[in-house]
Amino acid sequence: MKVGVLALQGDVREHISALIACGVHPTTIRRTAELDHIDALVIPGGESTTIAQLAEIFGLFAPIKQRIAAGMPVYGSCAGMILLANEITEAKDDQKTFGGLDITVKRNAFGRQVDSFESDISFDDGSTDLIRAVFIRAPWVERVGKGVRVLARVDDHAVAVRSTHLLATSFHPELTADHRIHRYFIDEVAKPALQKVQ
């Protein structure tokens, strides 16, 4: 499986390290042609408004949207979650998203940087071990539509969700040494989704 990391802006390097630790050899994606060589995509943390604008300017926006609609597995953390949401609130005027996940995400829902936090939370991948989750000016999921399952919550707010081929977290597993979420994406989301397409 070839995995790309959208490398327009954000903590690309950390996602690449996490993916390498999971045994995949990711490539960075900044150009439309580079999309043709990947089976799955990771959208990093960063500034969702900046990433969306750069994607638009460099012609990546429509192709990524189409690939997602056609079933390409994608994992998005924080800004990546916002970009995968069909609907966002507290958005900048006319802010666009790739969409694909039938959820409504509230940007900066946990507050400003002084409210950013880390916490041990449970993640519904079959393990009862807690996971250290780092939330930075983090969004949460306000509404979950059909076909979307909640995998983690903080104070009743959904902070990790998945559909058949898309995974999104409000927090940043790439900032910790625990690669469980990336492994979950590869093994439990991307691989089964790609098998189904074939």
């Binding site: 903590d11 960063g46 409210d115 880390e118 916490s119 900032l175």
Partner: peptide
Amino acid sequence: MAEVTGTGRVKRGMAEMLKGGV
């Protein structure tokens, strides 16, 4: 479930999110 603010990881992590930006 204790939520801790202002940790080194949260502070440095915020800067990681700005990388590649202006």
